[in-house]
């Protein structure tokens, strides 16, 4: 009996029709597409996007060239050269991040003792030719200067979980 029932079920394409009914219903369901430039999904303050180098309030750059980030970077995307500055402090002469290598894991940010290298919420950046995504120290500092307000707000929100 069960076999006969199954036979008719197969020949009447019951299961196929069920599937089609499901997709047919979804045709009129609410669409979940986010129309990107006009609409945006909410972002976490922990979002890991484009890198930036921060400064103290007095304008002094935070990075002390400890090279912890370079050591921890799993993608080997960071390159640092260090020298003594005229006032006797230890500073970087070169701080490059190759964003084409970077995997945005956030380890550099975690490892930094002075919160100098951070990842910002920016995700809509691009490069038009080879090398555009190779960020050097002045570029990173410029990003930091531009978005300092947002960056410090995000760090503050996250501080109690650190």
């Amino acid at each position: 009996m069960e076999k006969i029932k199954d036979f008719f079920k197969t020949f009447l394409l019951v299961e196929l029709l069920k599937g089609m009914a499901l997709t047919g219903r979804y045709m009129f369901a609410r669409k979940i597409t986010v129309q990107f430039p006009e609409e945006k999904t909410p972002q976490s303050y922990r979002f890991r996007g484009l890198h930036a180098q921060r400064r103290y309030e007095n304008g002094e750059e935070r990075c002390i060239g400890c090279k912890l980030c370079e050591a921890v970077c799993p993608a080997l995307a960071i390159k640092i050269e260090v020298a003594e500055r005229a006032d006797g402090t230890r500073r970087t002469t070169q701080y490059d991040i190759d964003l084409t290598k970077c995997i945005f894991c956030g380890f550099c940010e975690e490892s930094c003792p002075v919160d100098a290298i951070v990842e910002t919420r920016i995700l809509e950046y691009h490069g038009e030719k080879r090398g555009d995504l190779y960020y050097t120290k002045p570029m990173l500092l410029a990003v930091g200067d531009k978005y300092e307000a947002q960056i410090s707000k995000d760090r503050l929100a996250d501080s109690k979980y650190r």
Partner: peptide
């Protein structure tokens, strides 16, 4: 379009 609609896209 149709396949998009059926997959909740536009």
């Amino acid at each position: 379009k149709v396949i998009g609609w059926m997959q909740s896209r536009i």
